[in-house]
Nucleic acid binder design. Structure first.
Lengths: 185, 185
DNA sequence: TAGATCATGTAACAGGTTACATGATTAG
DNA sequence: CTAATCATGTAACCTGTTACATGATCTA
């Protein structure tokens, strides 16, 4: 069994849902996967072509009155097999998140306390916005996908996102407090 | 003031410490920055060359008896200015961490409960190892850098790493529990 | 008729890793 | 003599984004 890159598997996975065209895949990404995976059209279309070449999906052109034609991709059994084989394989390494705020804080010695504080406040605000987005997504899943077998899994990943974001917000608060205390001395 | 890529600023930042050669930069990365930033020699050496071209550092070859010659890079005032300007600039977007375990869990419907459980257990173990590494790094900073002005900032980034890892471990536990309960029914 | 949305696609570029080449020195 | 560590560097490759080109359909 050949191994493919992550992009291939993500698309294979999305093709198990109702999203079957390149455009729909992008939308799905931006709505549901956005907190832990993103790709651009520049990756999606070439990868779809590749997936067909490898016979992991078949294309059909579908017409909806009032909309431009679109190409719909359907997983073959070979595609489904490849997806399942990949799902089984243990995750060999933890995500290596590059974190710009930590990088700036690491060299914080070359900043004033005010600058660091501003940096952290801006960051915290963005985290809070993200947290709200997670809540909307959660509500969306609960409202529209109650019966769907996928819903439970989607909510588990959201739970992760919410917890991690909440922890990051707490860290911002506690770190900010240290700087404010320091300034006041 | 020109803007450069992250790699350039990381190296500029490390050059403010005692690490002045390509080799030393790599070591520093692997020891201290590894939990939120990593780069390879393939990036370090070309970037050092670039930094000198831009007159943000100067090279001197230094010889230590018993060791091969090495090139040491010293920040110029232009380099220090560029670093400080970058530190000031707010972080425009939150890190978009790609998380393979979440991706697999998202499509967990196509796995057995056992497979998902195994995946999560393996993941949790890696998180625990990471947590231990953070504790060693923390100890290392406390032991050797007590006087250093950098130490405080380094410990703040570690605090972030520890908290996030702990939260991820908790999430693994709670998620595992859901699957075990389910199996037992 | 202009702008929004739906829809597909590619070329140029940026960023990064891996694998390799090279070679000095030291410890066992 | 061999392995480990110190040290510098590059070429090939992979992955991914951005910006652009193209064009249909619908709404205001």
């Amino acid at each position: 069994m050949k191994t493919y890159n992550h992009t291939t598997y993500v698309i294979l996975g999305i093709l198990t849902t109702d999203c079957k065209s390149g455009y729909a895949i992008k939308q799905f990404m931006d709505q549901s996967l956005t907190h832990f995976w993103k790709i651009s059209y520049g990756q999606i279309y070439p990868t779809l072509k590749f997936i067909v070449q490898e016979e992991m999906a078949e294309v059909r052109t579908s017409s909806t009155p009032g909309k431009p034609d679109r190409k719909e991709y359907f997983l073959t059994s070979k595609g489904m097999e490849a997806l399942k084989k990949w799902l089984e394989k243990p995750v060999e390494q933890l995500p290596a998140e590059r974190n710009e705020i930590l990088l700036k804080l690491f060299f914080g010695r070359y900043q004033t306390g005010d600058q660091t504080t501003t940096l952290l406040q801006t960051y915290k605000q963005k985290l809070e916005e993200r947290y709200q987005i997670y809540i909307s997504i959660e509500q969306g899943i609960k409202d529209h996908n109650e019966r769907e077998e996928d819903a439970m899994y989607w909510l588990l990943t959201l739970d992760y996102g919410k917890r991690m974001t909440a922890t990051a917000i707490d860290w911002c608060d506690d770190t900010l407090e240290k700087f404010i205390t320091k300034e006041g001395q």
